[in-house]
């Protein structure tokens, strides 16, 4: 390269960094940087009234899975914690499965509408996607509460005499999460199906496949990147959910998000809360890594 070419290149790279600097500073200050503080806090000793004492300790990390007996100091598996983790994982997986079961037909339906209609259906999915999560949680709450619309209607129709008690149960949290995260499943599925070449279906039927066989052997393998994307997009926020379990699960049916909050509130165990946050972050990063690998491997399978 000539000196002129080199200086041109250096200047372009320098300008790139200069222009990005304000955004980088902002995010270091109020997003990435603070995560390091959480990491540090996870290795400290809890203070008596919350906060921390600056003494190194692994108790925060150990405390994720074990409790120390107050009397003899032996370590036991923390059953209460495991229940919360199991609930979080179980509900997140169930939410992912249900949103896929409902989202795939919906995405397919939208993608196979005539082009003029398609934008309208897509817009109808996008509105809830951008609507306040809290408002949507309220909306579902008002429907499934004991004195909510569902029970009121069912009782007035004489179908039931006692209200179905859903609120403050795992089922309520499950329904709520499926409701609020459904659009996150539909949109990537739609994007994948939209790129799908419908001529492949004709080829499939031409080669003696039944509708079910076409679905199983032609459609699903090709839209797999969309399925993975949608599943990650639903699973990740489900696992870290805070608002939905708080509103629909009451105080008892906690998920990891609420459990973390508890440590910074009444629990007064900031290092445990910090360690839990880091653990959650690690799981989410692992899930995203799977997603990135799957999506780069499977991108553009048919041009």
């Amino acid at each position: 390269m000539s000196p002129a070419e080199q200086s041109q290149r250096r200047k372009s790279s320098r300008n790139g960094w200069l222009l990005s600097a304000p955004a980088l500073s902002l995010l270091f200050l109020a997003a990435s940087g603070p995560l390091l503080i959480v990491l540090v806090y996870s290795f400290l000793t809890p203070g008596q009234y919350g906060n921390v004492i600056w003494e190194f300790s692994l108790d925060g990390w150990v405390g994720i899975l074990f409790t120390r007996d107050i009397f003899d100091g032996t370590m036991n598996l923390a059953d209460a914690h495991l229940t919360i983790f199991w609930r979080s994982v179980k509900l997140s997986l169930m939410t992912t499965a249900l949103t896929f079961a409902l989202g795939f037909p919906t995405a397919w339906f939208i993608a196979t509408r005539p082009p003029a209609q398609r934008a309208m259906w897509l817009f109808l999915i996008t509105i809830p996607f951008w609507t306040n999560l809290l408002i949507r949680t309220f909306a579902i709450n008002e429907v499934i509460r004991n004195e909510g619309l569902m029970n009121t209607v069912l009782i007035s129709l004489g179908l039931i005499s006692e209200p179905i008690r859903l609120i403050n149960t795992d089922t309520a949290v499950f329904i709520g999460m499926a409701y609020v995260y459904l659009p996150l499943m539909v949109l990537p599925l739609f994007a994948a199906i939209d790129r799908f070449d419908m001529k492949l279906l004709e080829a499939g039927y031409d080669l003696y496949a039944s509708r079910l066989q076409v679905l199983r052997h032609v459609i699903l393998p090709i839209v797999k990147p969309g399925i993975i994307a949608g599943s990650i997009l639903v699973f990740v926020p489900s696992l870290g959910a805070y608002v939905t379990p708080r509103v629909l699960g009451g105080g008892k049916n906690m998920m990891i998000g609420n459990f973390i909050e508890l440590q910074f509130g009444q629990g007064r165990n900031w290092p445990l809360g910090a360690a839990l946050s880091m653990a959650l972050l690690l799981i989410v990063m692992a899930a995203l890594l799977i997603y990135v690998r799957a999506s780069t491997k499977g991108s553009n399978p048919h041009g």
């Binding site: 959480v38 946050s277 880091m278």
Partner: peptide, 15 residues
């Protein structure tokens, strides 16, 4: 977009 909100929230609470 990648970090769970609750984690960022806790981090900012501390900072």
């Amino acid at each position: 977009l990648m970090v769970p909100e609750i984690v960022t929230a806790v981090a900012l609470l501390i900072l």
